[in-house]
Every structure is written in structure tokens, then in C-alpha cells.
Design a protein around this nucleic acid. Structure first.
Length: 570
RNA sequence: GGGCGCGUGGCCUAGUCAGGAUAAGGCGGCAGCCUCCUAAGCUGUAGAUCGGGGGUUCGAAUCCCUCCGCGCCCGCCA
């Protein structure tokens, strides 16, 4: 929709520049297109040409303006305002938007790549906390955005089964009993307890560390007894983690365990490949890769002194596999992984393996400081969801006191999922945040319920409007009646959907969709407030009803792409 | 100490990558709107040295330099 309008504008401008014998350097946005309150899209390309032509921008803009081809489909008119050329959408374009938005096939884009998105990948040593879910929500939203853009996506969870953390879980299970709480929480308790044990004395610390080291060595060597222990602890923890993820509408398509890559020999193979670069050496007893030529002071350790592999070595093998099995590989990682992910990419570059696209998100901290599973200092995702759901239940009970408790519980659950997801996704990934209960429990304008509510309003109109409409014979729809300011603004906002998705999918910026969702809901609410539908004269009523259906589709698809339940009533 | 990221009204954020026409929202404050399709909504109002300073440019929240503040990292952890 909007992309069609934009490419026509690009075509017009390119043709006009050509006719004038003007050239602008190729590059991103070389036509200087920009969004503007003065136009549907504007170009300030005249400024770029002014220094070259030594003429005033206004004069250049005038020449270009006069050379614009007259045959147009989506562009109604262009206006010359000083140095700016403003383009406006035609009525027929808006009619096309309405018609397309009433159907199903305009909501999926034309990107056709196979994409692997790895997200969450939290160590199975405890429940997800409010920091982890930033990863999960950003990751899952990107999965949905990429699918919406037309890609085939495999969402993957990388299971760290060979690391020290997991060995500590096994040590914890040896010393303490798992209690009856939710699986991931029960695992966290023994893990925290084992870590506490280490603080008792130097002797205890050495003893526990030795136990963990032994677990690591035996597991890497393929000891079946240890393997059974680790796998069962991990499956148990992941079961709990999955339960939480499912509660938030998040699902992984496949799981890859790091041990896979050790057992298959691909870790050894990639270490061998790195050896051939001549940049590796045994130093201080460990096998290291020198990346100083690539801007990394720190050497990358590939093997411990005892020969066992490290996280980053195994990750290298995993990424080699990902590169071979996708067109794009996307990693969602916390800010603490900046350095290692940089080293990882540098090492892959050395081997001529396509690098992953890495989305880094900054930390979520508590008002009291940073979170830590090991120290038991965190707010779990389950606790957050429970609290938000409780608050939502109270609010829905105030608003819909006559509805059954089942209805209110159901709405509260869906509102809570949306509120939590939207709260996370609305903030740009490169902003560090502090978790705030008051904000998490606020369901007003800058939140998911605001958007869900707009859809519920649309659905309510449709329920009432279409039972009478259905009895009439199919009648001619005249979109030309939708000329009100709010109606046109709503149509234009609906049209933007494809561009927002396309851009978010290319730039991997899910918060752009969150911003769009809010704007779409605002546009609908203004229309709702000022353009009565059911009480309008017959023809206008039909046209507005169609607009409500179109806006409802846009809201529904937008919410689904954000992983937020699209409620028909609330 | 070095590397990366961030700094926008009292608070939270969009806009920064691709510099342009009056800095955009929310929360909180104040003042309004339910005989009218769900008021989780809508309207108005007050409130900003876009961290400070320099530079590039016709034009800088946006690009460059520098300083300050905050976060993350600099493990044979992940």
C-alpha cells in the first residue's frame, strides 16, 4: 500500500530529475524523501543540488516540480512550497487501500528469505526474570514481524548444557532436594543454594568448584551417568521456562543444545579451521586466538588448559551451522554479550562464514540494582504476569461488573499478556531501563490495552452494524463518501502498515511497530469519536462500516504481529 | 584505565542510522466531555538551555571533536 505510493513518488522524481538533466548521488534516500505534517510525503532534494548548481533551492525545486510527469495513479498532486515538493495521495489510492484492507492478502510482505532467529536462550538454571523477557519479547516480536514481511522463520532456543552454570545445577541437585514448586523455580532454589554453599568457607568453595569441574569434564567426555543427570535437570527447567513463554504467546520452533556441536565434531573442526589462519597459539596453558588485527585487545580462548571447550567455541560451531541453513541469522543478546559477539563475528569473518545480525538490548535493572539468578535477586516473569493479571482483573471487574467471572478472568489474562509485552517492546532496545511496578500496572494510553480496546470498539460496531447490514442485499460501496479529516487520516494510517513492517524487518527494530500500533489506535479513536457509524445516513453508514472493518483488520493484524491477544470484546 | 551504548519538560519515552518547514506522545498537574456505536476513550491547558561546550552546514536533537553523568563489558563464566 504505502510502499506502492512511495515507489510511484520515487519514479516521478527520478523522471523529473532526468528531464532536467540533474543527477543526485546514489545512496540511501538519495531523493531526500521525508515524512512531514505538510504532505503525505515530501522531498527536499533541492537542497542537495543547490551547492552543485549554485542556484537557490527554491528555483531548483520549481524546475523539478514543473518536470514531474503528469500520468499518475496513486499520487493526486504535488505542491511546490519554497524548496519543498510535497506529494499527496489520490482518492483512488485511498479507495484501493480500503478495498485491500477489507481482504486478507495485503498484510503479508514480499520478503522471501529463510531466517533463523535465536532468542531467549536463557541458562536453564532458573525461571525467566524481567530482564530475560526483554530478550524473549524482542525476539518473538521480530519473529512475527519477519513472518509478516513474508519470510520463513525458525525461532531457535540455544540450550547451554555444557557450561559451569549447568554443572552447578547438577551439584545443587546432588546436595539438595527439588521441592514441589514450579519446575524452573525449584531448579533455581537448588542452584542458589549450591552457590551459597560456596560462600561458607574456602574449603567449601574449593570442594564445590571441584565437583562442578568434574561434572563439566565428565559431560564433555560423554559420561552417560552425568549426561542423564544434566539432561533431566535441563528438561525439567526448560519445561518451566516454556510454560512461562507460552503464557506470553512465545514459542520456539526448535532447540539446539550446545553439546550437539561437540558430539558431532563440528567444534573440533572449526577450531582446526581457525588453526589454519595461523593466529592461534597455546598461551598460558590455554588455546587462544589472536584478534588484535580486528580491533580486539583480548585474545579469544578456544580451549581450556584441560582441553574442554568453552561457550564461545561451541557458539562458533552453532553459528557456522546457522549460516549454512539460512539466508539471515539473527541473534538477540543482552548488552553483556557485546564483546563476545563482536569476537564471534570477527572469528567467523576470518573463516569466510556469514556473520549473524546481532540485536543487542541494554539491561533491565531493579530500583535496588542489577538482577542476578545466582544470588536470587530478581523479579520472575511469572510474578510479573500474576501481578499484572490481578490488576487487570480488578479493572475489568469495575468496567464490566455484569459479566461472568470466567469472562473477566479471560479478559484479564489477555490484557496482562499484552500489557507486559507492549511495555517491553515499546522501548528501543538500546535504552537501559529500570523495572517499575507502577508503570507495569498502568493500562492507559501508551499501553497494550489502549490498542486492544480500540479493536474491541471496532468489533462492537461491527457486531451491531452487520446484523442489520447482512439482511440487505449486497450494495454498492461508495468510498468517495469517506472524506472527513479523521476518515482520511485513518485510511492513511492503515496504508502505512506495509512500510512499517518492511522497515522493522530490515532494521530489526520491533519498537517501530509498537509506535505504529499506538498511532493506528489513536487514528481509530478519533474516527470513533467524531464519525458516527450506525446512526449515519444509509450510504455513509455502509462506507463507514467498511472503514471500521478495514481498521479492525489492521488493528488485529498489528496486535497479532506484536504477539498481543486481539480481543473482540473486553 | 580502555571499548561499546545511552543522556529529549517533574517522571517515562518517540524522533538520531539516511541533517530540513512550529521538537512528538504518555504519566503526573490543572480545566472540561458519558439522554450519543464499550470513558481502558476524547478535548483543552501549563510545562523543554534536546547533558555542557566547540565545530561542519544555507540549516543540527540528528553529523564530527571534546568534556561531564549513567549503564554494560574487559574471566581457561555464560
Amino acid at each position: 500500500m504505502f510502499l506502492d505510493f512511495m515507489s510511484e513518488v520515487e519514479g516521478l522524481l527520478t523522471a523529473a530529475l532526468d528531464r532536467c538533466g540533474l543527477k543526485v548521488d546514489e545512496g540511501v534516500n538519495h531523493l531526500a524523501l521525508e515524512f512531514s505534517p505538510h504532505a503525505d510525503i515530501a522531498s527536499s532534494v533541492s537542497f542537495r543540488l543547490a551547492p552543485l548548481l549554485k542556484k537557490s533551492p527554491a528555483l531548483i525545486a520549481k524546475e523539478i516540480y514543473q518536470a514531474l510527469p503528469k500520468e499518475r495513479r496513486h499520487v493526486d498532486r504535488a505542491e511546490l512550497v519554497g524548496p519543498y515538493i510535497n506529494f499527496f495521495m489520490s482518492c483512488s489510492f485511498l479507495h484501493m487501500v480500503l478495498e485491500q484492507a477489507l481482504a486478507d492478502d495485503c498484510w503479508t510482505g514480499r520478503q522471501r528469505q529463510n531466517v533463523i532467529v535465536e532468542h531467549t536462550s536463557a541458562n536453564p538454571d532458573g525461571p525467566l526474570h524481567v530482564g530475560h523477557i526483554r530478550n524473549s519479547v524482542i525476539g518473538d516480536t521480530l519473529v512475527r514481524i519477519l513472518r509478516r514481511a513474508g519470510c520463513t522463520v525458525d525461532a531457535q532456543y540455544y540450550v547451554n548444557d555444557m557450561g559451569r552454570q549447568e554443572a552447578m545445577v547438577v551439584v545443587g541437585c546432588d546436595h539438595f532436594q527439588l521441592d514441589g514448586s514450579k519446575a524452573d523455580h525449584a531448579i533455581a532454589k537448588v542452584y542458589i543454594a549450591a552457590n551459597k554453599l560456596m560462600e561458607e568457607s574456602d574449603e567449601a568453595k574449593a570442594r564445590i568448584k571441584a565437583e562442578a569441574d568434574l561434572v563439566i569434564r565428565r559431560y564433555e567426555a560423554g559420561d552417560p551417568q552425568i549426561e542423564a543427570k544434566i539432561k533431566s535437570a535441563i528438561r525439567y527447567a526448560i519445561g518451566g521456562i516454556e510454560e512461562t513463554l507460552h503464557r506470553m504467546n512465545i514459542r520456539h520452533d526448535s532447540y539446539h543444545w550446545e553439546s550437539e556441536f561437540v558430539r558431532s565434531g563440528s567444534v573440533a573442526e572449526i577450531v582446526g579451521d581457525l588453526e589454519k589462519t595461523g593466529l592461534t597459539e597455546w598461551e598460558d596453558g590455554a588455546y587462544q586466538l589472536d584478534l588484535s588485527a580486528h580491533g580486539f585487545e583480548k585474545k579469544m580462548v578456544l580451549r581450556r588448559a584441560d582441553g574442554t571447550s568453552l561457550y564461545i567455541t561451541r557458539d562458533l560451531a552453532y553459528h557456522k551451522w546457522k549460516a549454512a541453513n539460512s539466508d539471515r541469522a539473527v541473534d538477540i543478546l543482552g548488552a553483556d554479550h557485546k564483546l563476545v559477539s563482536g569476537q564471534l563475528r570477527a572469528a567467523l569473518r576470518l573463516l569466510n562464514i556469514r556473520e549473524p545480525e546481532v540485536v543487542i538490548f541494554e539491561f533491565v535493572s531493579l530500583p535496588t540494582g542489577s538482577m542476578s539468578t545466582r544470588r536470587g535477586k530478581f523479579i520472575s516473569a511469572d510474578e510479573l504476569l500474576d501481578q499484572v493479571e490481578k490488576q487487570a482483573f480488578e479493572e475489568v471487574s469495575v468496567r464490566r461488573p455484569d459479566e461472568s467471572e470466567d469472562f473477566r478472568r479471560d479478559v484479564a489474562r489477555q490484557v496482562a499478556v499484552g500489557a507486559v509485552r507492549y511495555d517491553v517492546v515499546k522501548v528501543s532496545a538500546d535504552k537501559a531501563t529500570t523495572f517499575d511496578w507502577r508503570q507495569a500496572l498502568d493500562f492507559e494510553k501508551l499501553s497494550a490495552p489502549f490498542i486492544q480496546y480500540s479493536l474491541a470498539r471496532a468489533c462492537s460496531i461491527l457486531r451491531k452494524g452487520e446484523e442489520t447490514e447482512a439482511t440487505r442485499e449486497a450494495k454498492h460501496l461508495d468510498p468517495g463518501l469517506l472524506t472527513g479529516e479523521n476518515e482520511v487520516a485513518l485510511l492513511k494510517k492503515i496504508a502505512e502498515f506495509d512500510m512499517v513492517i518492511d522497515r522493522a524487518a530490515r532494521e530489526l527494530k520491533p519498537h517501530q511497530l509498537a509506535t505504529y500500533a499506538r498511532e493506528l489506535a489513536e487514528a481509530f479513536n478519533l474516527f470513533y469519536r467524531y464519525s458516527p457509524v450506525l446512526d449515519a445516513p444509509e450510504d455513509l453508514r455502509s462506507a463507514r462500516l467498511a472503514l471500521v472493518r478495514a481498521a479492525g483488520n489492521a488493528l488485529r493484524v498489528t496486535l497479532e504481529t506484536l504477539g498481543i491477544p486481539a480481543l473482540e470484546t473486553m
